[in-house]
């Protein structure tokens, strides 16, 4: 069966030589194509620049939303950013697709800094891995209740003392 609709989305985070992180997200689909590129400072995780383009769209008006992405400059990749980005760039006068690509870039930055601490944990097996995850959770209390692995009753949370 021939597909009626296709979406391809690709996002990356690149470590810059000056210690910054460059995040890129692009989407290519049947009716739309766009890309966003942003620079994020480290360790503050402040968005210092954003560039965007709508390469293909059904309604030409979509391109009018491109300048709105500049409103992301100055925001910090962290709690609250989803609401801020959707509020400033999505909604009636904006483009939810561009807002989504900005948030994809933010997600890449977060995941980029998640890989390194996960690596040594995932090399462990059995009880050693469980204990390593408990230490990880104690150091990252924001993860409590973020998913089933860190929900109440999970063995990865058992006995973990969380800082207030």
């Amino acid at each position: 069966m021939i597909l009626s609709y296709v979406r391809n989305k690709h996002a990356t985070a690149l470590d810059g030589p000056d210690g910054t992180v460059m995040a890129r997200a692009l989407v290519e689909e049947t009716s739309f194509a766009a890309r966003v590129e942003m620079l994020v400072s480290v360790p503050g995780l402040e968005i210092t620049s954003v560039e965007a383009a709508v390469d293909r769209c059904f309604a030409g008006r979509c391109r009018d939303a491109v300048p709105l992405v500049k409103k992301a400059v100055g925001l910090r990749v962290g709690p609250g950013i989803i609401k801020l980005v959707n509020g400033e760039m999505g909604g009636t006068g904006g483009c939810s697709r561009l807002a989504d690509l900005i948030l994809e870039c933010c997600e890449q930055v977060i995941l980029r800094f998640t890989v390194d601490p996960l690596k040594p944990i995932m090399e462990k097996q059995g009880e050693e891995m469980v204990e390593a995850y408990k230490e990880f959770l104690a150091r990252n209390p924001r993860l409590v209740n973020s998913c089933i692995a860190f929900a109440e009753g999970s063995p990865l949370r058992e006995g973990v003392e969380l800082e207030e």
């Binding site: 069966m1 009626s4 296709v6 979406r7 391809n8 690709h10 996002a11 990356t12 985070a13």
Partner: peptide
């Protein structure tokens, strides 16, 4: 260096 990479793909069929 590439710090992270994610790809998502969605295809939609219309069987009816």
């Amino acid at each position: 260096m590439l710090g992270f990479s994610r790809t998502k793909w969605v295809g939609v069929e219309r069987p009816g």
